[in-house]
Amino acid sequence: MNNRLLIINGPGLSDLSRFNEFGHDDLTLEKVQKKCLETCESLGLSLEFCQSDDEAELTNYLTRACKEFDALIINPVSYSHASSLDFDIYTSNIETVTLQNKPVIEVHIANIFQKGVDITKPIKVSEGNVGFVSGFGIHSYELAIRAVHRKLRKN
């Protein structure tokens, strides 16, 4: 049976037009999903791809990742910075997934460290044993999927 991968996209990612300023032109979430499906198919992974602006729903997805999936890729958007969203819930969920030795990779479309960020202030990225890919545009997802695939083959 194919390994099951869940890709979660966080708040605001239904509209990707704001990434134009980073040089990632004409991106839509549908394009990202299509590319992810193609990559997963070529590697023999089955994929569920979702997006939500709702914190409770995102938490549900994370809980499902623990139970029903073999690997998780998450674009947490502002969860990555200790923000108004509940950072503790996010990190404890990610930790639960990684405690089960499942590959988890955090992805971002743009390089989150690049624009208007004070580099002397550390950014909190996901805690727990996770990989991190940021700034490759749509290819951030592709790289993450390949990395997940290689890790799953090793386990």
Partner: peptide, 23 residues
């Protein structure tokens, strides 16, 4: 970012196109 706090600041990240870590 998951290690000691003195590793949390990168002078490289703001001047590169992309960052890959933990793979």
């Amino acid at each position: 970012h998951l290690r000691e706090s003195f590793r949390h600041v990168s002078y490289i990240s703001p001047v590169v196109d992309a960052v890959v870590a933990g793979l």
